[in-house]
Amino acid sequence: MGEVIVITSGKGGVGKTTTTANIGTGLAMEGKKVVVVDADIGLRNLDVVLGLENRIVYDIVDVVEKVCRLKQGLIKDKRFQNLYLLPAAQTKDKTAVSPEQMQELCEELKEIFDYVIIDCPAGIEQGFQNAIAGAEKAIVVTTPEISAVRDADRIIGLLEAKGLYNPKLIINRIRHDMVKKGDMMNIDDMIDILAIELLGVVPDDESIVISTNKGEPVVTDEKALAGKAYRNITQRILGKEVPLLDLEVDEGVLSKLKKFIFGK
């Protein structure tokens, strides 16, 4: 029996879809059987982030409405043996699926997969209610911005109201240089305010943009710092204790020289 985890945030554009793609891929790389579900009906994106956009025939609404069988709706990722995608419908809207249908779908998927990872749409309306309906655990994604943290706080409250207790936090797009200067909230600031457990921290890394351009999740990139961050998060989901990533990026000779001359 698998586990259903919803990736949510409240605010849009903080990296829910990227996080879903990387956690899903990361778990598949560890040999787990994974399905990533795009619950953002009308604004399908998980397919392009995973590089599977050309292979879609059926979608989540087709599956729920029984236009096709569940297995027909699932797209197998050819690069990772154990990874499947259930894409969102692009031409319908959020009301095309009900929370009850979503619950039923998750029950079915749990029978087949070790992990069911749901990419939740932004907002707190029907799409959000649908996405969390069948979930047992929740991951909240935020960035170190005042608006994203505020929305994360609201989402945590709404999750708990729906019985999804103890959501875990991922802090995305943190910039070590700005944190050091005191111009960006640090990890402790955000944990202090939101009072939930930290699952991981992902640095603001160019390699994410590059990997998304190519449709290859950054978790597969051995050299990228963000890739390492997502691999660590994957390990923590699997129950292993991994220390937090040291975000101190190699500064290069010039800035080291500056430091040597002018002091810190």
């Binding site: 909230m185 600031d189 305010i193």
Partner: peptide
């Protein structure tokens, strides 16, 4: 520091939200 400003504003706004 702008992060302290952000933190204070955030704390205040969350009291109202919560």
């Amino acid at each position: 520091n702008s992060k302290n400003v952000a933190k204070e504003r955030l704390k205040l706004v969350l009291i109202h939200d919560r």
